[in-house]
Design a protein around this nucleic acid. Structure first.
Lengths: 214, 214, 214, 214
DNA sequence: TATGAATGAGTATTCATTCAT
DNA sequence: CATGAATGAATACTCATTCAT
């Protein structure tokens, strides 16, 4: 489950004390509190309990820390999503599982959620970072797209849908739900919103009784 | 082109030469391109064609420029929304009008859209700014809430809805649609997505045929 | 005599108070005392009586200061050499005038002499700097070469000379004389060594009496 | 603290594997390429194939490496000079031998030549280093002085010479010849310049035919 | 001895802000 | 009002040196 991609680190027991993760976690904490640009490298170092210079043994520069957060931690999370989706048969179940997993993941690591929400929208800090972010969200959208297409095959989802829009529709709503939770200080149960949200995805807000069956 | 609502400014002749708007527009342009923190005051000044020091005759500091963008320009826009909504009878029409207006507004001023998308998610630059942003989005959510409640009264919207979630559901989706358009470089017609999007809001992605009528 | 090449500076009266020269002189002083690498930009600023940031209004970076010293100040000096040489008829007089001028110039600005001696030998700080230094010394060697060739025509200098070696022979000796003077703290009259040195150039150290006239 | 005078080390087997020389040679190589201040201790360590910390088992600090290069390697070389001079009878031969030896020595170790040329001119890195450099060049000048004085006794050198100037005259010329060779990338035969150079020392560039015999 | 991860003091450079003109 | 030269506090990053292993 844990990150096998860490450079020059094989021993699983050492991993927890590894400075790399210490710094990553510290950075998430401070980025979440103050934002990337408002955070100094010295603050990350202090939070991690290491010297300023130590950070540069594990990261190329300040931006690289953010890049690693996105590439390493995000991948960890999105792998979970894939697993969760794979274990469901029905496409509506897949969607429900995906949304619940996403809400749970962010609920478990609020700091990471904050960093994602805040920094991924920022304009290009660098090409590498932009690309990383784009790649992640593209993967996510692809996953949603696959679920919807499967749902159309199964007949439980409408066939007259512009897929690109559906993806944004789903992604945007769940992100806003997370965002609101983040801005509220994470004080309520985020995961419990999965089912009502999926209900909205599926049925919308319109009242079918009021509509003449077309 | 020039903003008629400047407080403490009555003389229309002076207004055109007013540096205030020049700087606001320049700031939006540069913030949109580079983000708030990556932008220097000198860049804004150059873009506006004024001296660095001149900016401090109109704005308290760099952050105040962003604050003014949110408070002044945003209010301008959201006033339009209110008007648009007020001219519709039916609540679904109100929602449709709101979404279309929002997409049109951002399509007309892509720079502003970018700044909104990017900077409003950033954690506290200052209390004043955070408050400003919160106030705007609260107003917007209130507007949506009113529309939905009216729709429930009219019977065209489901009554079994958690209103807080519906607001995020609508807001998140439209923002993501805008965001995608921004990231794509604003190269397609954004406003045309209003109707399909509202259709998704109303009907969701589920296929009612496949559901046993409950 | 004064630098007409200063950017955006036409008024000759303002020139003396110009920060550019203030910083150049300060840098020469501090570089001379401590060497380029041992000198901090803050020290130059303090010596010049300006703020640290002011330096970057006139110079691209620390290295650019050294580059300007070489390109601007050195050219000033070498122009003098050309003048001095041009005013002499006889080639031995030209050589004598050149050497005396060089010794006088460095005597008048010991700091500059020190910087030249110390930093011009250093390996490539940058391509621009290396090129600048090479260009200067090449000009100087060309000047010497012309004098020697003229001397050969006039018959007062030997014709069986490898010109490249002669240049180094002359240049090296005078530089070493300057260098010794610098290391001795500049406490004796440098210019007075011109005539004895040229005597050595012309006659060498050998005793012609002891030689069988060939 | 360790090993200041390696030459006295008798055990030949230890010497070859001795890290001390490995590091000295590595340092010369890297100093030659980049200059003292531009070189990091880590680079020397990598070039020597040892760990960074190992260097501090053999040298007090970075500067001590340079000090050792000057004191240890330079002495090695200047001992050769003494030998070479001692084996000549005639003082002109001594001078010739000295110059040829110097050129040969530097030709054989271009790196060392570069380091000498570049770093010895630098202003005080430390008192110990300055003193070391001064001592070496003083020894060299003393040697030259002795040769010249002997030449005066023998009658083959002029007696009307200011000895201090003669020393600089000889030293400067040969150093410039070396310097030029270094800057040219060491691509031609340096040692072959010894005889023409000594010819210049002895006879100068003047044409005795043109001079009225005094 | 040998290692190399960790340290943290030191520095070049940027940039929001001021103020004399 | 307008300017833009000057300021100097703030900060990312480097690298000589140490020390636990």
């Amino acid at each position: 489950m844990q990150s096998p991609q860490i450079p020059r680190c094989i021993d699983r027991n050492r991993m927890k004390s590894d400075k790399y993760h210490l710094i990553i976690e510290a950075a998430i904490t401070v980025f979440a509190k103050q934002g990337y640009y408002q955070t100094t490298v010295a603050q990350i170092a202090r939070e991690a309990g290491v010297a300023d210079g130590t950070i540069y043994l594990y990261f190329k520069n300040k931006e690289d820390i953010l890049l690693q957060i996105f590439s390493f931690r995000a991948k960890q999370i999105f792998d979970q999503f894939y697993d969760a989706v794979a274990h469901c048969d029905h496409s509506e179940e897949k969607l429900r599982s995906l949304i619940r997993n996403q809400l749970e993941a962010f609920q478990q690591d609020k700091g990471l959620a904050v960093v994602f929400q805040a920094e991924s929208r920022q304009v290009r800090k660098s090409d590498a970072l932009t690309e990383q972010i784009n790649q992640i969200s593209k993967q996510y959208r692809t996953l949603i797209g696959e679920i919807v297409e499967k749902g159309q095959e199964e007949g439980c989802m409408r066939k007259d849908l512009y897929l690109g829009l559906v993806k944004r529709f789903i992604l945007g709503a769940v992100e806003e739900v997370i965002n609101t939770w983040v801005l509220a200080g994470g004080r309520y149960d985020l995961a419990s919103m999965a089912d009502p949200l999926v209900d909205l995805y599926m049925r919308g807000i319109g009242n079918p009784e009021a509509r003449p069956p077309q």
